[in-house]
Design a protein around this nucleic acid. Structure first.
Length: 457
DNA sequence: TCTGGGGTCCTAGGACCC
DNA sequence: TCTGGGGTCCTAGGACCC
């Protein structure tokens, strides 16, 4: 692993002059990026297996059935807000007979894999960067310029007919512009057929003028507010600011990159697939308020087990483990807030990926931060200082040979992966787990569990 | 009553070294 | 009493993403 890998390095000026020729509509050497983004992804996954819900309003809830994290177009039209708490939208939902699902990550993960595999088969695996569960950037440099538009439509049609998931496609000379194009495609599905290209200078200028600064990828609410206070409201106005200004006022090189991207000079390069994570976290809200140390210990042991699995899956070991717990707010506030998070971390004597080596320090850290009498609503475990497993530096004082442990871990992983649901687990993780999150409305795992396969009658 | 989970990158500042 | 300059590494915290 090379932690210094620069995924976001500024590209050379030679590159950008190549792009400006692209803007004038040059030849095949032009570089374009596509972003393919699934429409209302979680809702679409649910609908694939429920034809009775096509054209019906659907929403999907976050873990613990807390927030609304995906809405079908029909639900959006009814005024169901994004990322809002479920209970606040409940009246609209009940009145309009909106179908509600708890999140079903087995299903979404599997459908995501199918979408990504389809994209890989269309442009080659090397030209796909999976950006999130429902989006991927594609490098279109191999597609001849005059075919870009038809190819973008082909992408959309193929994904939809092979997986049942509808997507929107945005194409432009930089990732940030592609994101803007995608946004426009999504906003006017009928008019654009879910495909929007920004490949001429006029198109780009028009799009930038229509885009507000808070709609730009990588401009969050903090910068958007600042920009608006400075009188910069459209993406076009931001694009015309000097790079030195961006460096001074918008987070250093992040700001420069943003301006370049808006000008169509690609500055955020494609990431290689299968990059290993630099930090691994498993954190959850509890399904009910937790006050007992013993319950918290079970939760921490369970999260540590999950995190250690993720660690081994990318063949890494961790040098640092940290644990945090979040109490409920003492005072009565109407607005959602929580009490001060307590965090503790420790450096391990040597990097490890063994669950049992991680649970012990995790639970000890918990002992140090737990306060009797408090009510807790959330906890988490984070692993950092990750190193490739084969290069784990041996500790001089290590007595036990590791071969046996490694064998045991991979045996447990294999059993749990094939059977799922923790058939084999560590006792510290508890058996009852009544603190576990609520998932009352989860659909079946149609595509990843034999016993939950969809039946066709 | 009820508000998710899991990441990334960058910068500043302190500790430490020669 | 006077107290450099340059470098690296680490961590905390802020900003962002879906």
């Amino acid at each position: 692993m090379n932690p210094k890998t620069q995924n976001h390095s500024i590209t050379s000026s030679a590159h950008s002059s190549l792009t400006s020729s692209a803007l004038q509509g040059g030849g095949n050497e032009n570089k374009f990026y596509a972003i393919v983004d699934c429409n209302s992804f979680y809702c679409s996954c649910e609908k694939v297996f429920r034809p009775d819900l096509w054209n019906k309003p659907v929403v999907v809830l976050s873990n613990n059935d807390g927030c609304i994290i995906s809405r079908s177009d029909e639900a959006k039209k009814l005024g169901v807000g994004m990322a809002g708490p479920y209970f606040q939208a409940k009246h609209i939902i009940e009145k309009n007979n909106v179908h509600v699902f708890s999140s079903n990550y087995h299903l979404y993960g599997d459908m995501s894999m199918r979408v990504m595999d389809t994209l890989r088969s269309l442009v080659g695996a090397d030209n796909v960067e999976v950006y999130s569960v429902d989006e991927a950037f594609l490098n279109l440099e191999k597609i001849p310029f005059e075919q870009i538009e038809s190819f973008a439509h082909e992408l959309r049609e193929t994904v939809e007919s092979w997986t049942g998931i509808s997507v929107s496609v945005g194409v432009a000379p930089s990732k940030t512009l592609a994101k803007i194009a995608n946004h426009m495609a999504k906003k006017n599905k009928k008019e654009t057929s879910c495909v929007k290209l920004l490949i001429t200078e006029e198109d780009m200028i028009k799009a930038l003028k229509q885009t507000r600064v808070d709609g730009i990828w990588d401009v969050g609410s903090a910068y958007a507010n600042k920009l608006i206070n400075w009188g910069i409201t459209s993406a076009w106005e931001l694009r015309n600011m000097p790079e030195e200004w961006a460096h001074a006022n918008m987070g250093g090189i992040v700001g420069i990159r943003l301006i370049k991207e808006l000008k169509g000079e690609p500055s955020i390069v494609m990431k290689k697939e299968l990059e290993i994570k630099k930090m691994i976290a498993t954190t959850r809200m509890f399904g009910r308020p937790v006050t007992q140390l013993s319950d918290l210990k079970e939760a921490i042991a369970t999260y540590t087990t999950r995190a250690a699995e993720k660690l081994r899956r990318q063949h890494c070991a961790a040098k640092t483990i940290s644990v945090f717990i979040v109490p409920k707010e003492d005072s009565h506030t109407t607005y959602f807030s929580h009490g001060p998070t307590k965090t503790a971390y420790t450096s391990l004597p040597s990097a490890t990926s063994f669950t049992q080596d991680l649970i012990k320090p995790a639970v000890e850290l918990l002992d140090g931060i737990f306060e009797n009498g408090r009510i807790y609503k959330k906890a988490g475990v984070m692993l950092s200082g990750l190193v490739p497993d084969e290069s784990v530096q041996a500790n001089l004082f290590e007595k036990e040979p590791k071969g046996l442990h490694r064998f045991l871990m991979s045996a447990i992983d294999n059993v749990n992966f094939s059977m799922r649901d923790d058939v084999v687990k560590f006792c510290a993780a508890g058996v009852n787990k009544d603190w576990k999150m609520r998932q009352e409305l989860r659909s079946k795992r149609h595509s990843s569990r034999w016993d939950e396969l969809k039946e066709v009658s």
